[in-house]
Amino acid sequence: MPRRSDAVITPNNVLAAARDAVDLATCTASARRSACVAQVRADLIPYEDVQTVRDLIDYINEVLPAAA
């Protein structure tokens, strides 16, 4: 298994990690996790012209409407 510092960061890897975080937030009843996802979503607004970001925002809106 490669060390974390050897990992290649790609938009797809980031999207997968972000989706995992959103999935974790949907499995908990924590308002704090939903608020964190909402903050990440808000932080991504300037980058909405990037397809990967749009995909993530759409996913957040679909599975965690409280964060939208």
Results as ranks from 00 to 15, higher is better:
1 M>Q: 10
2 P>R: 11
2 P>A: 11
4 R>E: 14
4 R>D: 11
4 R>T: 12
4 R>W: 11
5 S>Q: 14
5 S>M: 08
8 V>L: 11
8 V>W: 01
9 I>Q: 14
9 I>L: 15
9 I>T: 14
9 I>P: 01
9 I>C: 13
9 I>A: 15
10 T>N: 12
11 P>N: 02
11 P>R: 07
12 N>L: 08
12 N>S: 13
13 N>E: 13
13 N>R: 15
13 N>P: 04
13 N>T: 15
13 N>I: 04
14 V>Q: 08
15 L>W: 08
15 L>N: 03
15 L>G: 02
15 L>A: 05
17 A>C: 05
18 A>Y: 03
18 A>D: 04
18 A>F: 07
18 A>H: 02
19 R>H: 15
19 R>E: 15
20 D>V: 05
20 D>N: 09
20 D>L: 07
22 V>C: 03
22 V>K: 03
23 D>S: 09
24 L>V: 09
24 L>T: 15
25 A>N: 05
25 A>E: 06
26 T>Y: 03
27 C>L: 14
27 C>H: 14
28 T>Y: 02
28 T>E: 07
29 A>C: 06
29 A>L: 10
29 A>S: 12
30 S>E: 10
32 R>H: 10
32 R>Y: 10
32 R>W: 03
34 S>T: 08
36 C>K: 03
37 V>L: 09
37 V>H: 09
40 V>S: 08
40 V>D: 03
40 V>F: 09
41 R>G: 08
41 R>K: 15
42 A>C: 06
42 A>H: 14
42 A>V: 00
42 A>E: 11
42 A>I: 01
43 D>W: 05
43 D>Q: 09
44 L>Q: 03
44 L>T: 02
45 I>G: 08
45 I>T: 13
45 I>M: 12
46 P>H: 13
46 P>E: 08
47 Y>I: 01
48 E>Y: 04
48 E>N: 11
48 E>S: 13
50 V>C: 04
50 V>T: 11
50 V>K: 13
50 V>E: 11
53 V>P: 03
53 V>S: 03
54 R>H: 01
55 D>F: 00
56 L>W: 09
56 L>M: 07
56 L>A: 01
56 L>D: 00
57 I>V: 15
57 I>S: 12
58 D>K: 00
58 D>W: 02
58 D>I: 00
58 D>F: 02
60 I>A: 04
60 I>N: 02
60 I>W: 08
60 I>S: 00
61 N>D: 13
61 N>S: 14
61 N>P: 00
63 V>G: 00
64 L>W: 03
64 L>I: 08
65 P>C: 01
65 P>V: 02
67 A>V: 04
67 A>C: 00
67 A>Q: 01
68 A>E: 06
